[in-house]
Amino acid sequence: MIEPKIAILVIWILVFIYSIAGSIDFGASFWAMIYTKQDTQASEIANRFLSPTWEINNTILVLLVVAVVGFFPEAAFTFGTVLLVPVSLILLLILLRSSFMVFAYSVQGYNRTLRTVSGLTGVLVPALLISALPVTEGGLVQVGPRGPELDFGIFFTSPSVYMYMLFGLTSELFLSSLFLADYSKESRDQGAYKVYRRNAILFGPITLVVAVVTLLSFRPEASWLLSNINRYQNWFVLSIIMFVIGYSALWWSDRGKKLEGKPRIAVIFVILQYGIATFAYGTSHLPYIVYPYLTVGEAFTNINTFYSLLNVLGLGLAILLPGFIVFWALFLKDKRYLQRK
């Protein structure tokens, strides 16, 4: 059957989109917190980007959850049971973050406190989100008489889990600074551009090193995954090449402009880098959703529901596409919005 493969591909595409969009979103609120006191526009820029976009990002997260429930109901059952506590924490943090961001926009007086809360939750959420990955790799879930359960003892003492979290964090900071560098350049804001470019230059290599260490620190139960990953080595090499091109674009000279570097190119190549790596990781993960208890085939929904969902997904995206384009034009391109003081 080809259908479960399509379904898991859709899920991975959504995971990928959310990991990029989410990193940028959460990272932006972190930077907005860090630069609140500085006299550059760095904090303003981050907030200007955040105000209209966090909602869309949040909806992507919900789309991902709904897609898992629809395509792989059995996986929703397992994750729901196993991840009750960590996911509940994530939900609480998201609730606080979104509401505080909105409140900060309305209540000028308490700006600092509100921004600090949204900034701090902005680092905690991605770290917790990514910890779902090691849980699927084996050894952390036990199936007892009451159903599947997460072994918190192992979870909290496993270096692999912490490496994943670290990887989530550095990726978030790297991707968001890169994106904000591009956004500041689009806004013609020299000061902010310099700040974010410097951050991107710093976090690029760090992220790469952390990624390698994360792979090396895999738990013994995850050796099946590691050996699969080895088979896709070429993909990872390709991913690193994308990184090198993207990273170097930060120094490419941009003729006629006084700001050094082509952040737009850098963003595109780094997104490719993550796309390729996600795809390779996702393929290596097959056929398991949660090793060794649940495979893609077992978790799959029935055929009728699958096709209805796929049609709805395609149709919905097609209908909304103009909306996204208008949105892009208004908030990510329009000079009147970007260069507002």
Binding site: T59, A67, F77, G80, V87
Partner: peptide, 26 residues
């Protein structure tokens, strides 16, 4: 929370009535 608190329910939802949830996202 639907998946967290009612996993048994969502197993059936996912197979039968996932469509409105999906359209709702749009």
């Amino acid at each position: 929370q639907l998946s967290l608190l009612w996993p048994g329910f969502m197993k059936i939802v996912g197979q039968v009535i996932a469509v409105p949830f999906k359209i709702e996202i749009f």
